[in-house]
């Protein structure tokens, strides 16, 4: 019978494993009963760092994270995590996280906190202005056309509908759905200068 670590702990609670293993697990059980995660909600996630894709369990109590650990059921990491993964808890319990939009005016030497509504309104106006000013509906390009079986080069005015005055980088830190949405949004704005971490 194959017993995973989680099954093992579950079984040990019933006294079954202790009886079959032939040694006393009582201190382990007593400790497990004291753990704060005993009453916590478990959510599964995947580590945000490298591309191995280790499974994690996030324990929450009253809307706060109280613990993050490797998911023992996950076939790749089978419960283990590296130092980065094991420290994900501190991405939440962290005073350096930026929690409001911030704005830095031209020439200013400090950030100031601003509202989402103000920031998004300002950005939308700037994006529209930059797009409208740098939008290129057509471009002169050279193409080859067959004339009497021979390639002849000729210049045409081709439809390109692109925005030349804006660029974007990012991001491999987004979820798939967000990446899709972001490329859709950017191409909807006519951007062609679209790049991210994969290029560097």
């Amino acid at each position: 019978m194959a017993v995973s670590r989680r099954d093992f702990l579950k079984l040990s609670g019933s006294g079954f494993a202790a009886a079959t293993l032939g040694f006393n697990l009582a201190p382990v059980e007593a400790k497990a009963e004291d753990l704060a995660i005993r009453y916590a909600k478990e959510s599964t996630t995947i580590c945000p760092y490298c591309s191995v894709g280790c499974g994690m369990i996030v324990h929450t109590l009253g809307g706060n994270i109280i613990n993050v650990e490797g998911d023992p059921d996950h076939p790749i990491n089978e419960g283990s995590l590296c130092p980065k993964g094991a420290s994900v808890y501190q991405l939440r319990d962290n005073k350096a996280r930026v929690t409001t939009p911030m704005y830095r005016a031209a020439g200013a030497s400090e950030w100031k906190s601003v509202s989402w509504e103000w920031a998004l309104d300002e950005i939308a106006v700037k994006v529209k202005k930059s797009r409208d000013a740098s939008f290129v509906p057509t471009s002169k390009i050279k193409i080859k056309e067959k004339v009497g079986g021979v390639d002849v080069e000729k210049e045409i005015e081709a439809v390109v509908n692109r925005t030349m005055g804006m660029a974007s980088v990012g991001s491999a830190a987004l979820d798939n759905e967000e990446c899709y949405l972001y490329q859709k949004f950017l191409r909807g704005l006519g951007l062609v200068y679209i790049e991210h971490q994969a290029r560097i």
């Binding site: 930059s130 005055g165 804006m166 660029a167 980088v169 990012g170 991001s171 491999a172 830190a173 971490q197």
Partner: peptide, 9 residues
Amino acid sequence: FKGFFAWGQ
């Protein structure tokens, strides 16, 4: 360029 997005990078 006038404008730039550095989104998650």
